[in-house]
Simulated scan of single mutants.
Amino acid sequence: MTWLEGLALVAIGGVAGFINVLAAGGSMLTLPLLMFLGLPPQAANGTNRVSIVLQSVSAVGNFFRAGARDLGISLRLSVPAVLGSLAGAWLALQVPDAVFQTVLVVAMVAASVMMLLPQPRLDTRALTPERLTPAVYLAMFAIGVYGGFIQVGVGVLFIAVLYRMLRIDLAQVNVFKVFVVLVYTLPALAVFLLDGQVRWAYGLLLAVGSMSGAWLAVRVNMGPRGAKWVKALTLVVIVAIILRLVFF
Score class of each variant (00 low, 15 high):
residue 225 R to Q: 14
residue 219 R to G: 12
residue 79 V to S: 05
residue 2 T to E: 07
residue 166 L to D: 10
residue 40 P to V: 03
residue 84 G to P: 08
residue 105 V to A: 05
residue 62 N to L: 14
residue 128 T to P: 03
residue 23 A to E: 01
residue 151 Q to L: 02
residue 83 L to M: 11
residue 68 A to Q: 13
residue 225 R to E: 15
residue 88 G to T: 05
residue 233 L to F: 15
residue 69 R to E: 08
residue 18 F to H: 06
residue 224 P to V: 09
residue 43 A to Y: 02
residue 36 F to I: 11
residue 240 A to Q: 11
residue 98 A to G: 11
residue 157 L to E: 12
residue 219 R to F: 01
residue 202 Y to M: 12
residue 206 L to K: 10
residue 237 V to I: 15
residue 214 A to F: 06
residue 233 L to C: 14
residue 196 G to T: 11
residue 213 G to P: 03
residue 173 V to M: 12
residue 139 A to C: 12
residue 185 T to N: 15
residue 27 S to P: 02
residue 103 V to F: 02
residue 85 S to N: 04
residue 143 I to G: 03
residue 109 V to P: 00
residue 3 W to C: 08
residue 200 W to H: 12
residue 118 P to R: 04
residue 3 W to I: 12
residue 29 L to H: 00
residue 134 P to W: 08
residue 174 N to G: 14
residue 230 V to A: 07
residue 101 Q to A: 12
residue 106 V to R: 05
residue 226 G to T: 07
residue 89 A to W: 00
residue 104 L to A: 05
residue 154 V to I: 15
residue 175 V to C: 13
residue 28 M to H: 05
residue 106 V to K: 06
residue 186 L to H: 03
residue 72 G to H: 13
residue 172 Q to M: 15
residue 232 A to R: 15
residue 62 N to K: 10
residue 121 R to I: 10
residue 40 P to H: 05
residue 49 R to P: 01
residue 67 G to T: 09
residue 200 W to T: 11
residue 8 A to H: 08
residue 41 P to D: 02
residue 201 A to W: 14
residue 199 R to E: 15
residue 114 M to W: 06
residue 181 V to A: 02
residue 158 F to T: 05
residue 145 V to S: 01
residue 248 F to W: 14
residue 116 L to T: 06
residue 68 A to L: 10
residue 174 N to Y: 08
residue 31 L to F: 15
residue 44 A to C: 00
residue 122 L to S: 08
residue 56 S to H: 11
residue 217 A to I: 05
residue 56 S to K: 03
residue 140 M to K: 07
residue 48 N to V: 09
residue 16 A to P: 01
residue 39 L to W: 05
residue 169 D to Y: 08
residue 134 P to Q: 10
residue 219 R to W: 03
residue 48 N to D: 07
residue 222 M to E: 13
residue 30 T to P: 05
residue 80 P to E: 01
residue 232 A to T: 15
residue 32 P to W: 01
residue 218 V to W: 00
residue 179 F to C: 01
residue 36 F to L: 14
residue 152 V to H: 00
residue 34 L to E: 04
residue 46 G to E: 01
residue 160 A to H: 05
residue 75 L to T: 09
residue 245 L to F: 11
residue 117 L to R: 03
residue 171 A to T: 13
residue 201 A to P: 09
residue 166 L to Y: 08
residue 229 W to Q: 14
residue 38 G to N: 13
residue 105 V to H: 01
residue 114 M to H: 11
residue 19 I to G: 00
residue 75 L to K: 11
residue 127 L to N: 03
residue 243 L to T: 13
residue 148 G to S: 04
residue 226 G to A: 11
residue 239 V to W: 03
residue 185 T to D: 04
residue 199 R to L: 14
residue 84 G to Y: 07
residue 47 T to Y: 08
residue 170 L to T: 07
residue 224 P to Y: 04
residue 50 V to P: 01
residue 53 V to M: 12
residue 169 D to W: 05
residue 215 W to P: 06
residue 185 T to F: 01
residue 18 F to A: 04
residue 184 Y to L: 11
residue 222 M to I: 06
residue 49 R to F: 03
residue 194 L to E: 12
residue 224 P to N: 09
residue 239 V to K: 09
residue 113 V to A: 15
residue 61 G to K: 08
residue 240 A to S: 13
residue 155 G to I: 02
residue 175 V to K: 08
residue 89 A to G: 00
residue 189 L to N: 02
residue 160 A to N: 04
residue 113 V to P: 02
residue 140 M to D: 01
residue 61 G to P: 02
residue 204 L to F: 13
residue 203 G to H: 09
residue 109 V to W: 02
